[in-house]
């Protein structure tokens, strides 16, 4: 009886308790002492990720007009609304599906570290190309914010973006930014707070236009996974990785690491 109460209380708290997976984060080399939330910074190369990272943390990483500056992973911290945030700058990649060290680092961090928010920085002048990565990240995580950077360049080139429509299509907050002029940082921080604390619930877009043959296979497999792991949020993505023969995911499934990513499973076990 007491147990039930406790259990219930835990579940309640967990609406806004951090979602990140602390064990995995430590395994991934992140020092997590004294941090409430973990924020990942992802995006294509040369989109201004490092500039946003520097704006938030006050560190000075070199940012250049060259794809591929951040080779290793950089991390820093900041405080907002009395919460301590850990910010992790992931390597800039065009995709998470191919096989390169950079993409593995970025993918594994988002999947296994389960950051409380992933900020996806995109170059607004090259939105279509950048959406490739955005849609892939939204397959993995529920909690993301789109930072639409380089809005000044967009205007300079006589283009505009319908922000509300974009937010509706993607199901996540969209923040227009000019990171080099430090514009848009306040709104970004506001959404970081709301998404990480669970006040804002994202409904991320998931791929719908797979070819019929592939769609059938993905559905069949993800149904099978769901039978075993009913609370795993991204079964379709796991199914797609299995169909691609991704050994890391196959191993992670067999070793139970994927199973550990189920949110409520973990909390249900804890009180015992």
């Amino acid at each position: 009886m007491n147990n039930w109460n406790l259990n219930n209380k835990q579940m309640e708290q967990c609406v806004n308790c951090p979602v990140h997976n602390i064990d995995n984060l430590v395994k991934l080399g992140i020092n997590m002492s004294n941090f409430d939330y973990v924020i990942a910074l992802a995006g294509n190369p040369n989109t201004g990720k490092s500039t946003i990272f520097n704006n938030l943390t006050g560190l000075k990483q070199h940012t250049g007009n060259w794809p591929g500056k951040t080779v290793a992973r950089a991390e820093g911290g900041f405080v907002y609304n009395n919460n301590n945030y850990k910010l992790v700058d992931l390597p800039g990649t065009y995709s998470l599906l191919s096989t390169s060290t950079d993409e593995d680092i970025a993918r594994n961090f988002i999947l296994f570290g389960k950051p409380d928010v992933t900020i996806i920085v995109v170059d607004s002048t090259r939105l279509e190309r950048n959406l490739n990565l955005v849609l892939q990240i939204l397959e993995i995580t529920d909690r993301a914010i789109l930072a639409l950077n380089l809005m000044d360049e967009l205007k300079r080139n006589n283009m505009s973006i319908d922000l509300r429509q974009l937010a509706r299509e993607l199901g996540i907050p969209v923040v227009p930014m000019e990171a080099r002029q430090k514009k848009g940082m306040d709104e970004l921080l506001k959404y970081v707070d709301e998404v990480s604390s669970g006040k804002f619930i994202c409904k991320p877009r998931r791929l719908k236009s797979l070819s019929p043959k592939i769609d059938n296979a993905v559905n069949e497999l993800s149904k099978k996974i769901k039978e075993q792991l009913p609370n795993l949020p991204n079964t379709r993505w796991v199914a797609m990785r299995l169909l691609e023969g991704d050994q890391q995911i196959i191993d992670a499934l067999n070793s139970g690491e994927i199973g550990n990513l189920e949110p409520s499973l973990k909390h249900a076990e804890e009180p015992v």
Binding site: L131, L210, E244
Partner: peptide, 28 residues
């Protein structure tokens, strides 16, 4: 499915990206 799986997934992603982009990006 065969070996074309990867190509096909990227093709689907980009077709959605193109749709989203054409719905939202306006060029004067």
């Amino acid at each position: 499915i065969g070996e074309s799986f990867h190509d096909s997934i990227i093709e689907s992603i980009y077709s959605e990206a193109a749709a989203i982009s054409s719905n939202t990006v306006k060029t004067s």
